[in-house]
Design a protein around this nucleic acid. Structure first.
Length: 378
DNA sequence: AAGAATCTCAACCGCGCTGTA
DNA sequence: CTACAGCGCGGTTGAGATTCT
């Protein structure tokens, strides 16, 4: 059974919308309200597909859209929600008042995914368990733009500027939710308390700022579902990301990525403008360019730096400096029983068997991986 | 200065879900 | 139950802007 086209495409205009078209569409919807997208173009006198009208309205013309750059807080929310929901952009967008799924999707694809995945990755070579090799996603940088604002400022709609510095990693060194689950279904997936709380908080924002009762009801319903799933016993966010998913899933974020994200942050400042350069440095100074990487770990120039060196970073990381530079409450964890944490972290690469089924999160393991993960994700 | 390389994001496309006749 | 319309969503594309060589 062939699907009927959403509209008669012959003679319809495609491509960028003009200001006139925007005006026509806006006025029509002001008078007639949203909906009936199929008949809207005809009624409004637009030579556009109904879907195109809907998209234009939702993504660009709606009055409640928040213009301007994604704030650090929004970025944080996106990252966390994406870690929990995957590429469910509409769901994520429902927690970001004034943001559209398309905008978030674009932002993720162009900013966040690269930011996260461009950290050097570790790959344990057979027979060299203790010498993890840095596998870097080659940094792409030559031309291109530097800011969304610069891109948009020439366009018809004025927007807010004053974009704060990108600090999401900085803010999420400790509490960043982990990997990208393979777009699980809400009904079957477990969702953590943290995420539930987050969504609830976001819901409150939505309600406060926009009074969108309907959306709130929908989101609350989702949260209730999530809670019920969770109460059924498998509602742990970690359940979404067993190790094998973390390491093998396409686009999944490796624990090493998190560690390196953490480590990379220990300079205390993270600015997106520096990100690529930093990547370049790290990549350039990765496995091959860091002569101390392996030997340092083996000979342990000093005990504290060993772990970091093993991670393939190109400088001596001092774990105590991690504590020093991260004025986060959780940083106390680093201080508490430091040797124990160091030992736990060492497990991450000493076992080396990232692919091992026995190393899944949530399983009891004599090497105490849960301890590591609990600590790391706490 | 010019062309190449790269990035961003608006818009398109197709699929799946839901409601209805 | 089936067919279809309408809508929403996520993935992809490509024009235009920006930066680099």
């Amino acid at each position: 059974m062939g699907r009927a086209p959403c509209c008669e495409k012959v003679g319809l205009k495609k491509g960028r919308w003009t200001a006139e078209e925007d005006e026509i569409l806006g006025k029509y919807i002001q008078v007639n309200g949203e909906g009936s997208w199929r008949s809207l173009p005809k009624n409004a006198g637009l030579l556009r597909c109904g879907k195109s009208c809907r998209l234009r309205w939702i993504n660009y013309l709606r009055a409640d859209l928040k213009r301007g750059n994604i704030s650090a807080e929004e970025e944080t929310t996106i990252v966390k929600l994406h870690a929990s929901f995957g590429n469910r952009w509409s769901l994520i967008a429902s927690h970001l008042p004034g943001r559209t799924d398309n905008e978030i999707k674009n932002y993720w694809n162009s900013h966040l995914s690269r930011k996260i995945y461009s950290f050097p990755r570790m790959e344990t070579q057979p027979g060299t368990m203790d010498t993890p090799k840095v596998v870097s996603i080659p940094p792409k940088r030559k031309g291109g733009r530097t800011s969304r604002w610069a891109m948009k400022k020439n366009k018809t709609h004025t927007q807010n500027s004053n974009r704060p510095k990108h600090t999401f990693i900085e803010q999420n060194i400790i509490d960043i939710a982990v990997p990208t689950p393979p777009t699980p279904s809400l009904e079957s997936e477990g969702v953590s308390n943290a995420v539930t709380d987050l969504t609830a908080a976001a819901d409150a924002d939505v309600a406060e700022e926009h009074g969108e009762a309907r959306r709130e009801a929908e989101v609350n319903e989702k949260c209730e579902k999530e809670k019920s799933v969770e109460e059924s016993g498998d509602g742990d966010i970690l359940g979404l990301c067993e190790f094998e998913d973390i390491n093998e899933g396409s686009g999944a974020l490796c624990i090493s990525d998190m560690l390196e994200s953490c480590l990379a942050e220990t300079s205390g400042v993270w600015d997106i403008s520096e990100e690529r350069e930093r990547n370049d440095v790290v990549v350039a100074g990765g496995a091959d360019a860091c002569p101390n990487k392996t030997s340092s770990c083996e000979s342990s120039v000093n005990g504290d730096s060993c772990s970091s060196m093993a991670l393939g970073l190109d400088k001596h990381w001092d774990w105590e400096s991690v504590v020093e530079f991260n004025n986060i409450a959780e940083s106390q964890l680093f201080c508490d029983d430091w040797e124990h944490k160091e030992k736990l972290l060492t497990w991450l690469w000493e076992d080396g068997d990232w692919e091992s089924d026995t190393m899944k999160l949530g399983e009891t393991d004599p090497h105490t991986p849960n301890d590591v993960i609990d600590w790391f994700l706490s």
